[in-house]
Design a protein around this nucleic acid. Sequence first.
DNA 1: GATGAATGAGTCTTCATTCAT
DNA 2: GATGAATGAAGACTCATTCAT
Lengths: 220, 220, 220, 220
Amino acid sequence: MARRPATSPRKNASQERSRATVDALLAATARVLVRDGYDHASTNKIAEAAGVSIGSLYQYFPSKEALVAAVIERHIGEMMDVVRTSLVRVAALPLREAARELVRVMIEAHRIEPKLHRVLVEQIPRVGNMEHVERVDEEATALVRAYLEARRDEIGVEDLDMAAFLAVSSVEAMTHAAVLRRPALLSEPRFVDEVAALVVRYLEGDAATSGARPAMLAAE
Amino acid sequence: MARRPATSPRKNASQERSRATVDALLAATARVLVRDGYDHASTNKIAEAAGVSIGSLYQYFPSKEALVAAVIERHIGEMMDVVRTSLVRVAALPLREAARELVRVMIEAHRIEPKLHRVLVEQIPRVGNMEHVERVDEEATALVRAYLEARRDEIGVEDLDMAAFLAVSSVEAMTHAAVLRRPALLSEPRFVDEVAALVVRYLEGDAATSGARPAMLAAE
Amino acid sequence: MARRPATSPRKNASQERSRATVDALLAATARVLVRDGYDHASTNKIAEAAGVSIGSLYQYFPSKEALVAAVIERHIGEMMDVVRTSLVRVAALPLREAARELVRVMIEAHRIEPKLHRVLVEQIPRVGNMEHVERVDEEATALVRAYLEARRDEIGVEDLDMAAFLAVSSVEAMTHAAVLRRPALLSEPRFVDEVAALVVRYLEGDAATSGARPAMLAAE
Amino acid sequence: MARRPATSPRKNASQERSRATVDALLAATARVLVRDGYDHASTNKIAEAAGVSIGSLYQYFPSKEALVAAVIERHIGEMMDVVRTSLVRVAALPLREAARELVRVMIEAHRIEPKLHRVLVEQIPRVGNMEHVERVDEEATALVRAYLEARRDEIGVEDLDMAAFLAVSSVEAMTHAAVLRRPALLSEPRFVDEVAALVVRYLEGDAATSGARPAMLAAE
DNA sequence: GATGAATGAGTCTTCATTCAT
DNA sequence: GATGAATGAAGACTCATTCAT
């Protein structure tokens, strides 16, 4: 047990060195991706930007794709953390408040390295596991669906799968569209209000626009 | 004008030949893009697929980008034609019917060469001028805004810019999400119903979720 | 028929240009192979030695291996021509004369670019189709077998397959060994005599050393 | 000497450990060479296969070549041991029996790690000093020549250098050809018979094919 | 002596583009 | 205008070897 306490730090030193190299590479990849775009982000440039030799890059990442995939994974992880945390926090709130919070968080999540986010969203399909982003959407959809189920009585849409899918898609998309086309909107509270209103009205439903539920139920 | 009637056809022949070459190139580009993806679609391959020499390709298109840009332009043009035509046709209809029609058309528009569409959407950002697509969205937004203005009294949202922006973004996005994540939905009429419902409920507004308009007006 | 006589030369010019490039590449490959050995013969070096761009090299040969394979093919073709021609010429001669001639030709065949030959023999296993050289041996074996069959009555070995195999292998090997270890021998007529003697004695056979044939037959 | 009896085992332990590391490296090299071929056998792979760090590998072998050379040396040593032992054992036997035994041993020698043998034979020229192999042949030739000299009266070939050279070359080559082209033959006793017959007939000589000796002598 | 992270020269290969014919 | 051979910059990736710990 007490036999080799001295080697442990040495091992750690080594591990830390590796860790530092990997971190430098991921950071450099993100930077180069933002600066040059995927197509012009060569492994040599990335290695140089990381202050690391090209050989070291390949010691840790078997290909350019793997490198980008790792950056994506990390970025998505960060976004999902934000979303997951928020959805948990929101679970007990009534629809209207929950919706506002969700939209707010969605926008907030898009504030994490927005330039990197944009590049990744645009280039992701090319990286083998293009399901990355879709996976986020699917997970978010599942979480929302669970929430809707718990609040079944407040929901005026019959098909909860559909409801969750459309809610997530549209919030995601409106946020995205705002990021791309109306960046100014992101800082206006009105924007949150409107997007939340859109979702809430849809989810609450009403007898007139949704033929899915019998009138008497919708009217109750 | 009457001077060389014999050359005119020849000139036409030449013009037609050029036109044919250009068409062949665009078609070949689309085909290769779908088959090989943007990264593996080389100009040499495209020229070969078009049955045209690489030299001729560069006679008509100064660069690979120009070629892809032309394909994008054409594809977007086709989609916009569909959308524009539909919005005109819809102009006189009441909100609920107009919305249904618009959604239907949006989905239909995504049925034009869906594989090419997907590749283009994925790669457009890399070709540089993705303003093309944004232009489409902006034009669509403007058209919708005009419609909303004409039907001002049916609309429960204060800010028509916002209303048009969110309506277009969300319909566009839900369609898109369905194309990517739930292709099966595209054939289900329910899908059109739901998306239309989402938009209509938002645009009609209601006293409870939108503080912008007095309750009685919203209820009318 | 007489329609486009003018284009023919142009096409030829183009074809000849290609042909010249290919020839230059093959010659350069042989030269570099001899000078640097397979491992240090890079495609860039070869292209440079051929006075051709690296791009052109890959226009005609999809890989380094293909290039080397072509050189091998060509070299083997030349050797086989010599051998085949000789074997045909020899077909009508009695064993002893035929053997002498065959040995002489074998040695002669090894005088075609001997340095290249050495490199190729040594490196060939690495080039996908390593059967190249073996194919030569197999063809030679088949030709010799046919000869032996025709001269069945002069042959004292029961199994003609075995006889042909051993005859070809040993002549080939002795020649090869001489090339590598006793180059001086190649110019001595004695060498031809001895090698021929070795083969002849074996093929003629004798009652004492070969148990394969009954004594009376061997004695006839 | 008696001073530190305790360190002696430690030193031995150290020496043994070195020895073990070297052995592990040689064994790993052989294994990787067989598994991956020379080109894909990297020093890193070998170190890993040996369960040794790459640093340690370079402690014992200054270069990849040195490593492979050591493997060759060892393999050739093993083969030579077999051959040497056999030739000694055979020294007192008459030609026919000696020849059979020699051929048998030659084939047996090729059964020592045949896959490694093949890789080495193919790659040795590239490792630079192929003198190793030539040395083997030269030593074998010298031993055979000594034998022939001792049995001068049984030999019908004038030039013993030539006789030894051709005998060794051809037996070596036929064995080799069989390994490469007719592996099945190696297990057939007939093969040994025939190869031995070939050598014996040559060495015994005869009046008709070798003008060197008078007919009556050859006939005795 | 051992370790293994780091190095970087050098390899093969692709592809947009040019230009002589 | 058409052709297609030629170009070469640039990219991804390997691996023998070094050296700080």
